[in-house]
Amino acid sequence: MTRIDAKFAALKAEGKKAFVAYMMAGDPDYDKSLEIMKALPEAGVDVIELGQPFTDPMADGPTIQRAGQRALESGQTLQKTLDMATEFRKTDDTTPIVMMGYYNPIYSRGVDRFLVDAKAAGIDGLIVVDLPPEEDDELCIPAQKAGLNFIRLATPTTDDKRLPKVLQNTSGFVYYVSITGITGAAEAQATDVGPEVARIKAQTDLPVIVGFGINTPDTAENIASVADGCVVGSAIVKQIGEGKSVAQVAAFVKSLSDGAHRA
């Protein structure tokens, strides 16, 4: 059982929904980014999604693209992202960390080496947005063998024919993208999301977490009420991009997590 599995089992036992927070590793720089990461569990974050900056982030909207650019300009690398996880684990051995990004940095490092290093750093799961299920032998199956969850995205365009393929080797949770398009583009609506979550849950026992288009405590509550939890990314990254202090970012995150936990 991974930390992700344990966390969702504990939340289910408490009758609580999950709040997942995304942040870009190394934004605006390594030290402040690590401080923010360390503040997230206290702010009510159940799972941390740690973005790995990449030069060609095709699924990300402008807010997260700019965060990736800031991180790369400050010298963030895949190794430094693993170092952040290692540092975080010195004081927190329970909060799950999901590394989210693109395949190129992992491929460049070498899959076998990356998986050994990620596991040693305390990474629990991976979301790699540009590796479809047809490429499962590339990273997904080796990752699961190494004890890491491999989390897939389902979207409004994932029809009933495609869904079983998407779910086939998924573990940890299913990330449902509430809107078509890029991150930070529109607001998620519970009336649209609810039936889609039910459709996915009819085909899997995994928790279904909804992301994209959630930027207020009320939206977090509404979306979490029709799913197993929600993810907020762009709204948090925007606060960091505006130069807010660690305490200000943490307070904003807490308002969102309180919303999700009310659901």
Rank of each mutant, 00 (worst) to 15 (best):
Ala263Asn: 04
Asp137Lys: 09
Pro142Ile: 07
Val129Arg: 03
Ala59Glu: 06
Lys80Pro: 14
Ala251Met: 08
Phe19Lys: 08
Asp117Glu: 15
Lys254Thr: 11
Gly147Trp: 15
Gly243Val: 10
Glu14Asp: 10
Asp83Tyr: 11
Ile4Pro: 05
Thr63Asp: 04
Ile151Asp: 05
His261Trp: 14
Asp29Tyr: 14
Asp130Trp: 13
Gly181Asn: 04
Lys244Thr: 11
Gly211Ala: 00
Gln144Ser: 12
Phe54Met: 13
Asn215His: 13
Gly15Leu: 01
Gln168Thr: 10
Ser171Cys: 03
Glu87Pro: 04
Val210Trp: 14
Val128Ala: 02
Val116Trp: 08
Arg113Trp: 12
Ile151Val: 14
Thr91His: 06
Gly101Trp: 04
Leu34Ile: 13
Arg262Val: 02
Leu139Arg: 06
Val193Ala: 00
Pro41Ile: 08
Leu115Trp: 13
Gln144Ile: 14
Ala198His: 05
Leu206Gly: 06
Glu221Met: 05
His261Pro: 02
Gly181Cys: 00
Asp31Arg: 14
Leu163Thr: 15
Lys38Asn: 07
Gln52Asn: 14
Ala43Glu: 03
Ala263Cys: 01
Thr204Cys: 11
Leu78Ala: 12
Leu82His: 06
Ile179His: 01
Asp160Phe: 04
Val129Lys: 03
Ala143Lys: 11
Asn149Ala: 14
Lys32Asn: 01
Ser74Trp: 15
Gly122Ser: 06
Val249Leu: 08
Asp93Phe: 03
Leu139Gly: 04
Ile236Asp: 10
Leu153Arg: 04
Asp29His: 15
Asp29Gly: 03
Glu196His: 15
Met99Ile: 11
Asp27Cys: 02
Gly26Cys: 10
Tyr22Phe: 14
Met37Pro: 03
Gly194Ile: 07
Arg113Glu: 13
Thr95Arg: 09
Val249His: 06
Ala146His: 01
Ile200Tyr: 10
Gly15Asn: 09
Val166Ser: 02
Val253Trp: 09
Ala247Asp: 15
